[in-house]
Design a protein around this nucleic acid. Sequence first.
RNA 1: GCCGCUGUAGCUCAGCAGGUCAGAGCAUCCGGCUGUUAACCGGACGGUCAUCGGUUCGAAUCCGAUCAGCGGCGCCA
Length: 446
Amino acid sequence: MAYPEFPNHDDFTAISKVLAGECEGEVTVRGWIYRTRSSGKLAFIVIRDSTGSIQSTVSKKNVTESSFDDARKALIESSVIVKGTPAKDDRAPGGWEIRASDFKVVHFAETFPITKDQSDEHLLNNRHLWLRSQSMVASLKIRSTVFKAFRDYWTENEFTEIQSPSFTTSACEGGSTLFNVYYDDEKEKTGQKFYAHLSQSWQLYAEATMFGLENIFTLAPSFRAEKSRTRRHLTEFWHAEVESAWMHNHQMMELEEGMIMHIIESVLSFNRKELEILGRDISVLENIKAPFERVTYEEVLDKLNSMGFDLSWGDDFGYKEEKALTQDLTSPMYITNFPREKGFYHRPDPNDPKSLVCHDLLAPEGYGEIIGGGERVWSPDELTDRIREEGLEPESYGWYLDIRKFGSVPHSGFGLGIDRTVSWICGSDHIKHVIPFPRTMRRTTP
RNA sequence: GCCGCUGUAGCUCAGCAGGUCAGAGCAUCCGGCUGUUAACCGGACGGUCAUCGGUUCGAAUCCGAUCAGCGGCGCCA
């Protein structure tokens, strides 16, 4: 295929600049055809780039005959280069249009499979194409801001970013949610087909790495084979985790609060346009205020029971309970002191051994849990006891127990579900809308 | 693991007390139109009704199985 001559990259103008009325004289924009309408002598071609979309008018009398034919023929998503004069015109969507003096098609698109009639399934099957949509682009820009804000916040607090392996043989969440990876050719030779699990969390590795660096964080995918078909679950999700030596639970909670506020403020500074595209009520985000409410598990039990639930000590909060707690909140809420059954690595409260020195952070508006964290068991003997208590084998945690034998210290950490956080900030009705290629129980393509 | 739902043209759907039931809109293609706003007007193209089996004189329609997908619960971030 022969491509037209290209102007230099720097010779192009971003569509957002044209829409802002910042351009004098002729401009050249490039992008993809978003909508097209034509009559015998005039074609309206709406072009989008990553910054916005603008209508160009291609008149038969102003361009060559072949350019006009191309403009009429080119289907949606064809890539094009348009040269012309910006003009303020109320008849144009967005108030500005480009009166074309030249119209080049770089590549004629085939019939685009996504039209105005869209089903969930069709959009997921065509995710590789749907990523071009305004709403996906807006969500992904916000997602990028959240990633950056997370990194900036912890870096500024003198935490070091580190990486842990995705292949592991240690489980830190329930064993039933582990994905297994196999070594195919080994399987044929030796029958030893199992290689590793996919990591559910960096935590065990973080606790080891912490002894050198003290304050660390990571941003990585975690994998959980939960058979969860809900608007809040992915089998592969992006996990933002932090671990800190000498840190107490309440100190970590204060830092997390600062992190959430930094993330919200960053999105409010950089992504107002994207929030508007997504239809998010910006005042809801502006009204988020620290400090967040802190309540104990026991207090939540009482509160829920007074709302008509029937819960007793040890019961978990399901989505119904979380929703009842958070749907009228304006800011996130901490729940602390969960029952000791919640996890072997959380440290039981010395003053109240039936509960743990730990916390969850629940996002408002019914979005529910986005953070789980707490203080870790740091005494080697206590950790061995706790592993046994949960019905697990201390032998399978060899190296993890080993790190406690050489100058163990109190420490705390947490995990933040980045996708859940973005979903909440975007006001999305499903977590799949805020990640480019969602991985769920029944979908691994595209 | 459990509950519910869906599968008919490229897309969105209608048709389902079994018998003019192979349909519409959009998309695509052809023609028309100098201001359209996911335009409008005329025409054309397009389907083994998910697959397999059963009931029946007759199945898109009823029954069963399978496959694929969607929503939710439990659990979690």
